[in-house]
Design a protein around this nucleic acid. Structure first.
Lengths: 197, 197
DNA sequence: AGCGTCATGTAATGTGTTACATGATTCG
DNA sequence: CGAATCATGTAACACATTACATGACGCT
């Protein structure tokens, strides 16, 4: 990580989940194994060490619950420095590299940015994502044109599908960004209307 | 890799590219940096060691070109054991894990399977991919239903989009699989027609 | 003389997976 | 009483990224 504000996708996911509410390692494990977030990890072998790292980095704090009983659980919560780290990570620009290799992470960042930084920042991520894809699409189209269907029909189909999926991504991102903005202005309009009543 | 037939995505990509024609490390590097296959690697730091590994594993052989000149290049070509390893890897079943984390690899396998194993195997991969997604979709829909839009609207949008993209994936896979099968039967029909003329 | 491309590699580091290890509690 | 789940972790390994290192060739 050249940029110190960049967290690995797993650590970002952990901070995001802990920003919603305190959770134990096992709680987090279940989130990954039982929901669509499973793409960001599996297995205790990744999660427990990552939590340890986050504690040492001063981003989260662990407190032991049921200390006296025979089955204690260590519950982690986000502390100030962790909130800042999460925000900084969510504000990182959307890059070509993100689009090519980490599209899932961008979606994750969108979801948490909405919760942690508010609608405006979520909209900004969606628009940056769409922009970045749109600047990439011409290159992909050129590659498709350079690969005649008659030659490698299988590669051609795969590339074509990739392009179509990117197009669907941008359409979705623009649509949701506009919906979020309209809700905002509609709310402003209502508030304005109520003041002049 | 529990299963010995499983190659890392990068090694699979390298074997696939070398199955098309012999290439040097630098040639391969350019493919990744200049085409949509860039998702499978970047940087010499991954490619050269992987090539070395493939040589040691007996999958490819390197021959030095321009040995006498001052700028020699090492050209790698697939040898028998490598062809077998590639075929075995392409024939691996499409798993839930592939769908959740390695959708790109499945597309890569489809493309190379078509070239290396023929149309039938390519169709099989597409259908297995669609099947696997369709068995996963109900779970995702249940998750979406359990997450009311009013609660976490950002996460809701992200999950909804994930579901829609999976649906687009299956539609595409079924369509292309059917196209490939129809071409096949059309060709058989023509061949049959020519025999009875 | 300097820049861009050709061409190949290594070392340190980060990060995740697989497999292993341990033990308590709850439910049937 | 056995199986599933709760709950936490470690060790070996695989794998890729980043940054570094080297040097020739061709063009301006």
């Amino acid at each position: 990580m050249a940029d110190p504000a960049t967290l690995s996708p797993l650590k970002l996911a952990l901070l995001g989940l802990l920003s919603q509410r305190p959770r134990s390692g096992y709680d987090l494990l279940k989130v990954f194994s039982q929901t669509a977030m499973g793409g960001f990890s599996s297995s205790p072998g990744a999660i427990y060490p990552a939590l340890k790292w986050l504690v040492r980095a001063g981003h989260i704090a662990g407190a032991v619950e049921n200390r006296d009983t025979l089955r204690p659980r260590r519950v982690y919560r986000l502390i100030d420095a962790g909130t800042e780290a999460l925000k900084a990570s969510l504000r990182m620009p959307v890059t070509r590299d993100d689009v090519m290799r980490n599209a899932d992470s961008v979606l994750l960042r969108f979801a948490f940015a909405g919760e942690v930084l508010g609608r405006g920042e979520a909209v900004r991520i969606l628009e940056a994502y769409a922009d970045e894809i749109e600047s990439y699409l011409p290159e992909l189209k050129a590659q498709l044109a350079a690969l005649p269907k008659s030659a490698g029909p299988y590669g051609w189909h795969a590339l074509k599908h990739g392009i179509d999926m990117y197009r669907a991504d941008t359409r979705w991102a623009r649509k949701v960004a506009n919906e979020l903005k309209e809700q905002f202005t509609a709310r402003q309009a209502r508030r304005y209307a109520s003041t002049i009543q």
